[in-house]
Amino acid sequence: MDPQLKSTLKESRIHSGHLQPFGAYHMEYGPGEHVLDCHWHEESEIFLVLEGEVLFQLDEEHFPVRAGEAVFIDGGDIHAGHALGGAGCKFFALVFGAGLLTSAQYDIIQDQVILPFQERRVTFPRLIQPSGSAGQELLKHIQAMMTACTVKPPGYEAAVKGRLLLMLQELAVSGMACDRSLNRSGSAVKLERLKKVILHIQQHYDRPIRLQELADLIPMSEGQFCRFFKSMTGQTPVDYINSYRIRQAAEMLRVEDKKISDIALEVGFDNISYFIRVFRKIMKCPPSAFRKGISP
């Protein structure tokens, strides 16, 4: 995979560091909202739906995830999702690097458990459901990690690491392990086309972007391109561009003192009223309230 293209969807958020080797997040979204725009990160992720239902995308695969079910995302996988139904959704996400699990020295655990996981030769099912005893055990570990990350008792980081190791042990005894070490060449062309378009959007979001301009990158007709993009991301190209621009604006509102009108122009909106309307739709509050920290 072209390193430049692969970087296009890479999430910029730092989930872990030297002393904090994982990130834990509780999120809530309204009906039909995009839970995740298309992106990827080096770390693996466990996504547990607490309420509602989410239509999840992993590469080209789409499937619903209901309350009480979890998704496992291997490091490097493109993923996205949006809330289904009329009630919105709540979820917990744990994002961790494989380095969290490595041994201090190369031992049998590193050789037979951690290395196969790092190489994706032994990894979790995409969808983890409570329909069997093994799935129930995996979900119990995930729920225990969520509780630990919420309450944060002394040493909770060790509990998270221990639970992840126990989950890998459950794979070994249950026969649920999946081998995703082989490239799926059938979807590679579509994914590379998508990354090329996203790269262009991320490099030029601060100026007007025409649909035909994006379609010419593949190349496709404008109609074909819109259908392709929607099938790959679950969003129209305009919705994706607006969402990307608004998230850039939100970050600027957090850290900069510029006028809201200036920020709107810098992220590609030439109509301030339209910017405020789109911002409110995506962020559930106007830019002024977001800057003040007043949000739902």
Results as ranks from 00 to 15, higher is better:
L5C: 06
K6D: 10
T8K: 00
E11P: 01
S12T: 13
I14H: 14
I14E: 13
S16I: 08
F22A: 02
G23E: 13
M27P: 00
E28L: 08
C38Y: 09
W40E: 10
E45W: 02
L48D: 09
L48T: 15
F56P: 02
F56W: 06
E61N: 15
E61C: 11
H62N: 10
F63R: 12
A70I: 03
A70K: 03
F72D: 12
G75H: 07
I78G: 15
G85H: 01
A93N: 11
V95M: 07
T102R: 15
A104Q: 10
D107R: 02
Q110E: 13
D111K: 11
Q118H: 05
E119L: 09
R120K: 15
V122Q: 13
G132H: 07
S133D: 07
G135S: 10
G135M: 10
Q136N: 14
K140R: 13
K140G: 08
A148I: 12
V151H: 03
Y156G: 11
E157V: 13
K161M: 08
G162W: 08
Q169T: 09
Q169H: 09
Q169V: 15
A177P: 07
C178R: 15
D179Y: 13
L182Q: 14
S185E: 11
K190A: 05
L191Q: 14
H204N: 15
Y205M: 05
I209P: 00
Q212I: 00
L217P: 11
G223V: 12
C226F: 01
K230T: 13
P237L: 04
I241T: 00
Q248W: 01
K258Q: 08
D262E: 12
I263E: 03
L265C: 08
V267H: 04
V267T: 09
V278R: 00
I282P: 01
M283D: 00
R291K: 15
R291W: 09
R291H: 04
G293L: 14
S295C: 15
P296R: 05
